[in-house]
Design a protein around this nucleic acid. Sequence first.
DNA 1: CTTGAAATTTAGACGCGTCTAACTTTTAAT
DNA 2: ATTAAAAGTTAGACGCGTCTAAATTTCAAG
Lengths: 221, 221
Amino acid sequence: MNKKNEKLSENLEDYLEVISALSEKDAGVRPSDIADELKVKRPSVTSALNSLANKGLVEYEKYKPVVLTKEGKKHASGIQKKHALLKNFFTEILGVNASEADLAACKIEHAINDSIMNKLNNFIGTLNPCTTCNQESANCGKTCVKTISLDHLKLGERALILAIDSAEKDLARFAGLGLVIGSTVKALRAAPLGDPLVLSVRGSEVSLRKAQLASIRAKVL
Amino acid sequence: MNKKNEKLSENLEDYLEVISALSEKDAGVRPSDIADELKVKRPSVTSALNSLANKGLVEYEKYKPVVLTKEGKKHASGIQKKHALLKNFFTEILGVNASEADLAACKIEHAINDSIMNKLNNFIGTLNPCTTCNQESANCGKTCVKTISLDHLKLGERALILAIDSAEKDLARFAGLGLVIGSTVKALRAAPLGDPLVLSVRGSEVSLRKAQLASIRAKVL
DNA sequence: CTTGAAATTTAGACGCGTCTAACTTTTAAT
DNA sequence: ATTAAAAGTTAGACGCGTCTAAATTTCAAG
């Protein structure tokens, strides 16, 4: 009955993404909120929801709020990952303003495959702090990239995660702790020898070895 | 009668781009070549051509080859510029293979506006040669970016233009000489004092001051 | 518990881009 | 010059995603 194995259209991916974002506030998402978010009329949402339900990505009954299925969550998180990476690249590295970056990321996230995304991720990890203007003072006129590995985050400083270049299993563990591209972290305190470091992530504290933090590229805020 | 001021759909932009590319071989482009290139059946081409003709972007009469109008050429060159920049970024900087890069660029070029494109262009200009592996020898394992300003191109070497960060009028002049993103150049010889430099571009020779070449970022081939 | 307002869905239309099948024009070979 | 093949177009259909207008369901106030 369900057409689970078909490729998702860009359009439906957008719906999925918005539903996922709205799910963070409320478990059950109302169609009108989706409509507002996507700048679309309500009947369009209804038909999109039916499609998504057909593919097993959302649980949906008439007049009831929408809930993502496990499959749907998985798919949505994949898209959000791309979105976050692209948005960060645009804002933090190219210097594009947030709303423009969001708009572009929203379109591009459907066009870029995992292989390219990984390469972009790795590339960001190789960027070094701008040597021309490494002081906070003046802007050197060129696009400045001031990225650090998270192990170099100073106590009290906050940073935005730009890229993560870790092994698969670390990646999953990091994600569980809230350490994903786009998250903001703060260095709270360090153990006597400076390692491990205690970070604040999304309201909770996590303690991590510097060796592991070295694979996380971030921008100091 | 013509609807010249409407925004072009992504789809029609693709047609325009292909027509422009095919025009370089033959002035008059045949519909079946367009169909092959876009992996589309011939009737689809016919209707697209009618739309483009309506908007004043191509000259088109039934059963006749297609020719871009001035307006169409302008629009197409804008898209190609984006395509070349994106493709180069993917292949030369991220290390994506050519066909994958082409595919991605083809989709993204419609989503990225001029402002972001300029910023990407400028960003590429700020990238310095990889300091970890600046020898030709080994690959350091990370994505390596070996870019130079064209004024540093050594005699006999060839380079691929990645980004151009010049004033508008220089930009137009460069374009007239064939110096656009994606072109390959070769340093032929220099004047006694080393400046100006004579380059080979698309079969012809051009002589340029190093001061001007400094704003062109390239990758040595 | 009633009832009116708000939210949602259904029905039906439209635009865009694609396709197949059938028809017309051009082309090139004899 | 004729004619068959190739190229191109028209006609008509379909899928997707959107919309408006109208019907239905839910919710909340009294």
